[in-house]
């Protein structure tokens, strides 16, 4: 594995984002908009049983919800590069498959870090004072979750015939997780069972526990982390396999 090749792709990904910033709005402006909107709407509404505002209750869900939307630009990027013949061309160079995926992991994980930092700063400014462990762990969880977004992106790029179609198809993965696993909506028991088959559920569950004062040593948090990691690894393996077999040309 050659670092020079990996960094070349990372650089290209960043340049493309800066020069064609529509996906950047989704990665960075969406969390800003969500935090501002939710804080204005729910900061003054207090949940009497627990004594915190609805906004504070929803903060873990905001991390999860924002991270989920990273799958959209990833799927568009893969589909566009395939449509433009770039993936085929890269495939005729000495760049290996693992270098290619490695470069996308780096660019996506760094985006996840920036996104979490934005949410952490903004929620703090809006009055949220969650446990510090929760904020630190949010970085770890969302970086791991970002691995699965690459998997979702690859699966979508494999299924969709064009970049336009990819924008719709990625919603197969985004919408169910948005409603059932982000932790932003109250769920009936049946829906809670379904949500356990979604990686985002484990990220939002661990964050909710931590921000509600549960100690980092609690076994449930580590179980969530392990399951999230397994989901992310599994999804990216499926994505790589499908894309390699059916998606390159």
């Amino acid at each position: 594995m050659k670092l020079k090749r990996i960094l070349a792709i990372v650089k290209i990904e960043y340049k493309s984002l800066i020069r064609s910033p529509a996906p950047l709005y989704m990665i960075l402006l969406l969390p800003v908009a969500l935090v501002l909107l939710f804080s204005l709407m729910f900061r003054s509404i207090i949940i009497e049983d627990v004594g915190t505002s609805v906004f504070e209750f929803l903060v873990p869900g905001l991390y999860a919800f924002s991270g989920l939307f990273m799958a959209v630009p990833v799927s568009l990027s893969f589909s566009e590069e395939r449509e433009q013949g770039l993936l085929k061309r890269i495939n005729t160079t000495p760049m290996t498959g693992s270098e290619f995926i490695g470069s996308h992991l780096i660019s996506n994980m760094s985006m996840a870090i920036i996104q979490v930092a934005i949410i952490a700063v903004l929620t703090f400014l809006m009055g949220f004072r969650g446990a510090t462990e929760g904020i630190v762990f949010a970085f770890v969880l969302m970086v791991i979750f970002s691995i699965s977004t690459i998997g979702f992106g690859l699966i979508t790029a494999t299924i969709s015939k064009s970049a336009k179609a990819a924008g719709g198809i990625i919603q197969i993965f985004v919408l169910p997780q948005q409603f059932l696993a982000s932790g932003l909506y109250p769920l009936p028991t049946e829906a809670k069972v379904v949500s356990q088959f979604m990686p985002l559920h484990y990220a939002s569950d661990a964050l909710t526990l931590l921000f509600n004062g549960v100690a980092l040593s609690d076994i449930n948090i580590w179980v969530d982390l392990i399951i999230l990691s397994l989901f992310s690894i599994g999804i990216i393996i499926v994505g790589i396999f499908l894309f390699k077999k059916y998606g390159k040309t």
Binding site: I12, K15, S16, R19, S20, Q84, G85, L86, K88, R89, T92
Partner: peptide, 13 residues
């Protein structure tokens, strides 16, 4: 070196 039929270049670069 491969020059494909479709001009495979990054449009924003």
């Amino acid at each position: 070196g491969v020059c494909p039929q479709q001009a495979a270049i990054y449009p924003y670069l």
